[in-house]
Design a protein around this nucleic acid. Structure first.
Length: 600
RNA sequence: CGGGGCGUGGCUCAGUCUGGUUUAGAGCGCUUGGUUCGGGACCAAGAGGUCGGAGGUUCGAAUCCUCUCGCCCCGACCA
């Protein structure tokens, strides 16, 4: 057997039969690095995770850190190409910024302080504090403040496809949530918010193009919470998939769509004439369920109170109707603070509350900030804690029993599937989504702090108005598999398939087959088709199972069965076991047509 | 950071409870030879493991004890 690797002789890596390996656009399966696996690792749960491992697309190196094998790298490269085309179409200019950055840069923006251990920090040999970038706002501002100084240069947009590192508390789901990942991130600079808003819409359209072109069948953009990072408007692009980490609510007609964090509904609360308030004994009944069981009432007859504390010890009591859940994102927004956590028992007692029997009734509003959800404020005759062990009150009525002037009333609850949509009134549908991209109108938050100023027509310095736009590349690959697979493997769209065509030679050992298959392989290559050629001569079942796991959209099978009739078997990946016979002399032209007719 | 689970060849796992026929096994994959050949074939012969690591108990530890590291799942967190 010839040795494939020859040092310094000028010979390239050779195929098993001694022939020279051609360019990477075609490949003999016998030489492809990255085995297909019959069994998935035990820890792989989602379809994308299973097929990425079984198909030989990627391998784990550590928790949430993966190597891409040749097949995976090819898919990612195609996704990146599509992203580049669409970013270039909105006048983006590609750059490359460092992953390793001095921490002092992050102190300028203030994020060195506000971001926790998710930002990986370390020191270089001189003891200088450094960080691994989890995003590049600081770096792009560093560039822009010296390179973009005049209104004549605005608007402009810079983008890159670069590694990010986030020391995630819990990576999960294969490539869905990882610590090291490739992200396309883009940053635009504008003279005015109006200019940003108009450009933002163009990027939104570019994103829709990207996700359609990579083959996501069900990808929706939803308004999202801008978080404590601020900004006016933000959208998340969600690939709908059961394994998604985010919960979405959409109306049946799709006109309303929102992340659970901000979704609203027009649920109407039951209002009855107020009854006199009375104290009742409720031994050992703390949870809403226990109270309802003990008193024989419904969950919604109670009020649910949860105490939080901010980072500096300010206490917050949030109250919703007993059958509903508090939404912490909404609560944070309502109180204007992001640093809240459940209060401990001492903190609750210090504010006059009794753990397990907390309610706003009788508390000193100077010691604790009270936030009522509309559901609690608009319901009547609720059962609430008495701030006394083993006692509750019956018939609490907001307004009569609590002064609205001393508290905040806001939407701080999480909506549930089936509640009426705020736009259409129809029952909301709950879906799961993978966040494959997001876009933000940042405004001047970073440019002010980092001194990204330009001179306007009057020679006056002004902070640039910024937008930022991200896409998770590896996550997008995983999301495409989630939406395009069967029980045997991925069913790649032509646009990002690792190879366009999978050529199988059965009984490759037979000279006639070998000759015909080699010629067909060469002809397909010459026609510019990306071919993966299974030249291993394995049994049919074995070869087909591998082909399914790799998932190329087109498949040709050349074998002693059809060769004498001058035919080649053809099937599309999603045809199941069906196939048809094509004339060998015209098959290359037909394949070329199919490759070109598919959306790129 | 809480709760749960798991670490035995590249992958899936048995053996652990009840320490000793185990010189540590099976299937898949890998190598060699042969027979096969249309949906993961068969026979034969091989290569590959300090049973995650350290310490301890014991005549004897994959198995019991202590500590530690790693990995997975649920939750918290997530510009």
């Amino acid at each position: 057997m010839p040795c494939g690797l020859r040092a310094a002789s000028g010979c390239g890596i050779r195929n098993r039969d001694g022939t020279e390996r051609k360019r990477n656009e075609t490949m003999r399966l016998s030489q492809l690095v990255g085995q297909r696996l019959k069994d998935a690792p035990r820890d792989a749960q989602s379809s994308s995770h299973i097929f990425i491992i079984r198909g030989g697309y990627a391998r784990p190196l550590s928790t949430g850190i993966y190597s891409l094998l040749p097949l995976g790298k090819r898919v990612v490269a195609k996704i990146e190409k599509i992203i580049r085309e669409e970013m270039d179409a909105v006048e983006g200019q590609e750059v490359l910024m460092p992953v390793i950055q001095p921490q002092e840069l992050w102190e300028e923006s203030g994020r060195a302080q506000t971001i926790g251990p998710e930002l990986l920090r370390f020191k270089d040999r001189n003891g200088k504090p450094m960080v691994l970038a989890m995003t590049h706002e600081e770096a792009v501002c560093h560039l822009a403040r010296t390179e973009i100084t005049s209104y004549k240069q605005l608007p402009s947009m810079l983008y890159q496809i670069q590694t990010k590192y986030r020391d995630e508390a819990r990576p999960r789901g294969g490539l869905i949530r990882v610590r090291e990942f490739t992200m396309k991130d883009a940053y635009s600079f504008h003279a005015t918010p109006e200019c940003l808003a108009a450009y933002y819409d163009r990027v939104h359209q570019a994103y829709e193009n990207i996700f359609r072109r990579v083959g996501l069948k069900d990808c929706i953009s939803i308004k999202s919470d801008t978080g404590m990072i601020g900004g006016k408007l933000a959208h998340e692009f969600m690939a709908v998939a059961d394994c998604g980490e985010d919960t979405l609510f959409v109306s049946p007609d799709g006109r309303y769509k929102a992340n659970r964090e901000i979704a609203e509904s027009t649920l109407v609360f039951e209002k009855n004439p107020p009854l006199p308030m009375e104290e009742i004994q409720t031994p050992n009944a703390q949870k809403i369920e226990e109270i309802a069981a003990f008193l024989g009432t419904r969950l919604q007859d109670s009020g649910k109170c949860v105490c939080y504390a901010t980072g500096d010890g300010q206490l917050v009591l949030a109250m919703v109707r007993g059958d509903l859940e508090i939404n912490e994102v909404k609560l944070k927004k309502a109180i204007g603070r992001g640093d809240i956590a459940f209060a401990n028992d001492e903190q609750i007692r210090a504010a006059g509350g009794c753990p397990g029997y907390v309610s706003p009734y009788g508390l000193d509003c100077k010691k604790i900030k009270v936030v009522f959800d509309h559901s609690a404020a608009e319901s009547s005759n609720l059962i609430i804690g008495a701030n006394k062990e083993n006692f509750h009150y019956r018939n609490f009525n907001f307004g009569r029993d609590f002064d609205p002037a001393t508290c905040t009333v806001a939407d701080i609850r999480t909506v549930k599937a089936g509640e009426p949509c705020p736009v259409t009134g129809e029952p909301l549908i709950e879906k799961r989504g993978i966040e494959v991209g997001n876009i933000f109108q940042l405004g001047t938050r970073y440019s002010e702090k980092m001194g990204v100023n330009f001179l306007d027509q009057n020679g006056k310095a002004k902070p640039a108005v910024m937008g930022c736009y991200g896409i998770g590349v590896g996550r997008t690959m995983a999301a495409v598999i989630e939406q395009n697979h069967d029980q045997y493997g991925p069913t790649w769209p032509m646009s990002i398939a690792p190879y366009q065509l999978h050529l199988v030679a059965l009984n490759y050992g037979q000279p006639e087959v070998k000759a015909a298959a080699d010629k067909l392989y060469a002809d397909l290559q010459a026609a510019g088709i990306e071919v993966l050629f299974d030249d291993r001569g394995e049994k049919a079942g074995f070869a087909f199972a591998d082909a399914d796991l790799i998932g190329a959209p087109l498949r040709l099978i050349i074998s002693p069965k059809s060769l004498p009739e001058n035919k080649v078997e053809f099937k599309k990946r999603d045809w199941g076991k069906r196939s048809e016979l094509l004339d060998k002399d015209t098959v290359v032209a037909e394949m070329q047509k199919l490759v070109q007719s598919e959306p790129k």
